[in-house]
Design a protein around this nucleic acid. Structure first.
Lengths: 254, 254
DNA sequence: CGTGGACTTGAAATGACTCAAGGCCGGTGG
DNA sequence: CCACCGGCCTTGAGTCATTTCAAGTCCACG
């Protein structure tokens, strides 16, 4: 799966949403034949990023949206002291860069977690196509809305009081995303570090490490560095909503 | 401020983005005269909500975006057990409802925190106008991008380890929003309950209550139920980045 | 004036953090 | 090929902030 991009002929993959396995996940979803050709015209050459390579940095002028083709990214913000907060992990089919639309400058950063291939969608070309293809406009709004909903999910995870619950939800959601990509949802390859996971969840790395060990002891997971196997999906699902019985968060008491 | 909406003539306010004090904050920002008229056509009658009144519920079919004109809202999700997670608090000029664009159904809820006046923007009309006014399309993307960035901010707050820091940032950000609305940023009226604040930050209500007391003891705030006065903005700003010296979150160690 | 919900406060329990040490692995250079 | 190094990860012990549990107060409202 990791070397897919190196095996395929790069030039062949240029401008070919129709031939892309992700077409029904990312932008072209629900867009017909002729319009798809027009969309292809808006896509610039793919871009390869090595692990740690930056797709964009805080303050960069906005000029494109990006689709992950293979590999994975993290997006994050850093405050003036250099403290980082991870905003999301992005798998193939995910689109990043929406943060810059408001101010024409990126206000977050995107970085490859492993060798990754990225589709670049220059925004001026995209706008041009959008004006010709109303369906694409609608689709673009859908995609950015998906982003909003995805961040709601992140908020819900961070709002949990129990760290174990947070990690369980994180793993389950990763598993779900794997399945949507036709991968085996029980065999996760965590391209992000434990530090990243901890940061994403608002925890410290030791807590995350201990939780992995605990979940392994419980027989839920089999952990081997970055390779995590979900042995008991049923138990994992259980843990996602276990101690949600805390009364203060229980209801809508406004 | 709370009775502004009742003082003004309701019918006069209908379809009048140009006469709205919020015009440079919400959708019409950066849209010229003629186009503004067209936009006005997309706006349906205003809607009043009483405290606790629902603007939309989880599962409701999508048909409009909403602008807060006066008052305030909270948006939140509830899981199957009824546990709530607050996603945001929304002041005049804020637009809500973007969550539904992806699936044509709302996947969150919006509820008034006090008597509030809402502009309704039926999406089909909006789309119609959008096709005639390209600048509006661009503006719409800007606005939803602002939403994305705003949620990033929420994520950063929730990621903090110290509850006091979280509350300080929450109050400071509320103060900043007040100032953008030409209000006195040092006199906050918390229309949301302590439960809501706690939930929004991922804490329990007792912790929030204690923190208010502590901040008052420290001379930072003067707390009087829902009325909070910021006595020492300098100290408050200090607290926002105080204990950010925790090493695990410090840098980008991926 | 009484009731109920929101809020506050105290005391105790606990789960996550901090600090510290050690293990593991991949990469590098001899 | 092996030894060394450094970063990532794990584990342990102790501390502490936050949660939990339990009263009790305040205020709005009927």
């Amino acid at each position: 799966m990791a070397d897919e991009s190196t095996v395929l002929d790069l030039s062949q993959l240029r401008r070919s949403c129709s031939s892309c396995a992700l077409s029904d996940l990312c932008l072209p979803a629900g867009i017909g034949g002729d319009d798809l050709e027009k969309l292809d015209m808006a896509i610039r050459d793919k871009r390869m990023l090595d692990r740690g390579g930056a797709l964009y940095r805080d303050g960069d002028p906005f000029h494109a949206l990006y689709v992950v083709r293979s590999g994975s990214l993290k997006t994050f913000v850093q405050d003036d002291t250099g403290a980082m907060q991870i905003l999301g992990f992005h798998l193939p089919g995910d689109i990043v860069g929406f943060d810059a639309l408001a101010t024409d400058r990126h206000v977050s950063q995107a970085e490859a977690l492993e060798r990754s291939s990225i589709c670049e969608l220059p925004y001026d070309r995209l706008q041009q196509v959008t004006s010709e293809v109303p369906a694409l406009h609608r689709q673009l709004m859908r995609v950015v809305s998906r982003e909003v909903v995805e961040e709601h999910r992140h908020t819900v995870v961070m709002g949990r009081q129990q760290a174990q619950e947070q990690l369980a939800i994180f793993l389950k959601s990763l598993s779900d995303r794997y399945q949507r990509l036709q991968r085996d949802g029980s065999m996760l390859t965590l391209s992000m570090s434990r530090y990243d996971i901890a940061n994403y969840l608002g925890l410290v790395v030791e807590t995350v490490s201990r939780l992995f060990s605990r979940l392994e002891e419980m027989g839920v997971l089999e952990v081997n560095r970055k390779a995590v196997t979900i042995r008991r999906p049923d138990l994992l699902a259980e843990l996602c909503r276990s101690s949600s019985t805390s009364p203060s968060r229980q209801r809508d008491n406004g």
